[in-house]
């Protein structure tokens, strides 16, 4: 039985040719699509070489960085961190119930579907767009930045939280149910302990990414170091821009390292 050689019969050979043809035309289509998007994005690598002189001048304008207002930069960086912290914290608080309500093994479909669609909407719009809207609504300053991060992050975390809930082991939940616990108690004792490590890890990850986002919401007037960054770029004050960018890089890297260390303890 094991040593049977298989000779392709005529129809088999024909289907293989047909399949190969399909595969080739699939690749052709993909290439054509990539070419079309190349054109529409106006990608011109030649210009990088052509204008290399300009680039070099620009880079030279950035050095040496000008740290003369460092105290002010650090203060604004701190505000940025506070924006990220509160944006994330409010989002976590809202994402816990919303995440549970959009998990298939917890909520019935007539709750799950509407909640998921709203979360999709919150997620699909970028923080910057929300920031512009909230600046119009509540005025300039850090608060619209907090609101923008809060709204967008709620959409992201609710989805991640729900996915964690959907992978739990149903056994412990049933164990809790069998003691006569209420539905809420089933969630508190059966579900939450199981998803806690993942939830913490997702929240910390979103905090890191919100610190990065908080550095740019200022560009539309929503407070923090982004405001300085935007003003110095617009005023062609490149040494100052460089100093601000260095401060952002150092802070974000330090936070990433810190939050990785915290996350490791929970996994």
């Amino acid at each position: 039985m094991t040593d049977v050689l298989i000779f392709p019969t005529r129809p088999a050979r024909r289907t293989r040719l047909w399949r190969n043809g399909l595969k080739l035309s699939g690749w052709g289509l993909l290439l054509a699509f990539l070419g079309w998007s190349w054109q529409s994005a106006e990608i011109a690598p030649g210009r990088l070489v052509q204008d290399a002189g300009n680039m070099a001048t620009l880079v030279r304008d950035f050095v040496p960085p000008n740290f003369s207002a460092w105290r002010f930069y650090l203060e604004e960086m701190l505000v940025t961190l506070h924006i990220a912290l509160w944006g994330t914290l409010l989002a976590i608080v809202c994402a816990i119930p919303l995440g549970l309500l959009s998990a298939e093994n917890i909520a019935p479909w007539w709750i799950l579907q509407p909640v998921r669609r709203v979360m999709d909407a919150l997620r699909s719009i970028n923080e910057m767009v929300f920031a512009m809207i909230f600046v119009a609504a509540v005025g300039l300053g850090p608060f619209p930045g907090v609101l923008a991060l809060f709204v967008h992050t709620t959409g992201v975390l609710a989805k991640l939280f729900a996915e964690a809930v959907e992978t739990i082991d149903p056994g412990p939940v049933e164990g809790v149910r069998a003691t006569g616990a209420s539905a809420l108690q089933e969630i508190i004792f059966g579900v939450i302990p199981q998803v806690m490590p993942l939830w913490i890890s997702y929240s910390l990850y979103r905090f890191e990414s919100n610190v990065r986002s908080a550095t740019v919401v200022g560009m539309v007037g929503a407070g923090g170091i982004g405001v300085i960054l935007w003003e110095s770029i617009r005023g062609f004050q490149f040494p100052e821009t460089c100093a601000v960018m260095l401060i952002i890089i150092v802070t974000v890297s330090a936070l990433d390292l810190a939050s990785q260390a915290v996350r490791k303890r929970f996994i």
Partner: peptide, 21 residues
């Protein structure tokens, strides 16, 4: 049913304890 379940102890093959508690 929830009140009634509290009078019935249930022991499962896979124990069904909450592992992280």
């Amino acid at each position: 049913v929830r009140r009634q379940r509290s009078r019935i102890g249930y022991v499962f093959q896979q124990f069904n304890l909450v592992g992280r508690l």
